[in-house]
Structures are given as C-alpha cells and as structure tokens.
Amino acid sequence: MPYPLKRLLAFPLVMFGVSVFVFIAIRLVPGDAITAMLGTESGLLTPAQREALTAYFGLDQNIFVQFWRWLAGVVQGDFGISTTYGQPVLRVIFDHFPLTLELAVLSMLLSLVIGLPAGIYAATHKDRPGDLAVRVIAMLGQSTPGFVVGLLLIFSLSVFFGVLPRMGSFVPFRQDPVGNLAQMILPALTLGTAFAAAVIRVSRSAMLDILSEDYVRTARSKGLSRRRVIWRHALPNALIPLVTLSGVEFGYLLGGAVLVEQIFALPGLGRVVLDAIQQRDYALVQGTILFIAFNFMVVNLLVDLAYAALDPRIRFETK
C-alpha cells in the first residue's frame, strides 16, 4: 500500500487516540468536575443545583457514555462552554487562533528564508570562515530559548531606541497589513530563532551528505556546472529532511506561541490556553489543546503527502 495512503488511514485512529487521551487527562483532575469547573464558586451551589448541573453535563452517566457524548459533540464542533469567557469554546478558539496561526506561519517562512540559503552556503564552503560563522550563529540560535530571545529583543529596543513593541491590542492583517506586520515581526523572529537554527543545521548536514553521494559524482561526470549540480541534483534531495523538520517544528511553533504571546502580550490561542489553565477552565483547556493537536496532525499529514511529491521512492514504498 502506498505510504501516503497508509498515513491517511492511520490519521483518524491517532486522532481518536488523542481525543481519548485528552478526555481521560481532564478526568484525572482531582476533585469532582463541578468543583473543578466552577472553582470556589461551587461552594455557593445548593445540593439541588449541583445535582441539576451534574445531570446537565451528563456526569451521572458512566465514563463510556460520557466519552461518547463528548466525542459526538466534538465531532459536531461542540467543545462545550468556556466558564471564563462565557462563550462556546469553539468561538473562543476561532477568535484567537488566526493570530497564532499567522505567528507560526510567519516565523516558519522567516526561518526557511534565512536558514536554507545559510545552510547551503555553509555546506558548499565547508570549513572555510563563512561556514564557521554560520555554524557558530546556528549553535547560538539553537542554544538561546525563544522567550529569552524575545526578552532580549524587547530589552535592546527599549534601552537603545527607547521604544516598545505594540502590546495588548492586536491589529489584524486584513485591517492594516503594514501595522500588522510591524507588530508581528519581532514575535515571529523570537519564535523562529530556534527553528531557523535547526533549518541551518539540517540543510547544511543534508547538503554535505548529499554532495558526497554517488549520484552527485555522476552529475559532475556529466560536465554539469557547480550551480546546476547544487540546485538541480542536490537541493531536491536536501529538501526531504527539511520537509520532515518543518512538520515537526510546526508543532513546536504552535507550542512556543504560548511563551511568545505571553512576552509580547498578544491575544492569541497560546494566551487562551495559559489563562484557561490558570483559571481551571477545563472545557477550554480540553478544547484548545485538542484543536491545536488536530492542526498539528493535519500539518504532519500534509508533510507526509509532500514527501511523496518530492521523493518517488516513498510514493511506491509499501512499508
């Protein structure tokens, strides 16, 4: 069976597993669900109210029934009601997700645009000063946590230029593209540092491996120019590990957004998750994490499909 098809078939299975995991995880919270949901306010409930709520949320049913009800709701887009926002969870997600997505995509683009040429340059100038410089920068980028980069960026801006990035409110791209990008560029750089470093390292080492492959020697024996050997023969092969990396890193970007949004005070989904955890708003925690995991999985599925487009070996491989 072709590999992409296999991945496509495994997708719902893993998605189901993820749902079970999130469901069970939230059930493991100590104390009963009503208390967990309402926090200290639950003390104000009368026994009758408590019973009514228990019945309303189906908490008097056995765990399997509860799970099926919950899953049926999720499939229909009903993730429950957020107690902090007083709105349906899905609505909260849709309000805040665009920012996080833009942040992730922007930092991914930045990282690839910076990292790939740097990596190729380093590989083709192995052990020369340029290569050394690129490697040192990549090593520093890999070793400095994103949120530290963000803090240092804000610090240098305020100390050397006396300005602070716009915080608190958010300008959507559709309203004001320039203002939006001006606001997002620093967070995107912050979030992308580690990824850019990884892109440099992976593209450099992939390129180095490939340049010593037999088929590159064949290409050279055909009298192809150095440029043609690199761009036409080596690069398509080097993109394969980069695609893998991008898939994995997309998850890190979605996760890293939690920290970056916190530092730059951006109202994205990462902030929502954090608030939800601090407010013990479990329906929201459950919904957002499930939603992000789902997105991550879709991206990984796309990555697998992109693989098949890049590498004919995988298109037919049955493993």
Binding site: E213, D214, Y215, R217, T218, A219, H233, P236
Partner: peptide, 17 residues
C-alpha cells in the same frame, strides 16, 4: 569523457526520472 561507476543503484539521482 564519459564515465560509469561501480554501483548503479546509487549512481543515479533517486528523485529525478
């Protein structure tokens, strides 16, 4: 000057037809 090599399996670029 043309050249052929020992390992035909690895001497052709796997991603190009």
């Amino acid at each position: 000057i043309g050249m052929i090599f020992q390992e035909p399996m690895t001497s052709l670029n796997p991603v190009l037809s």
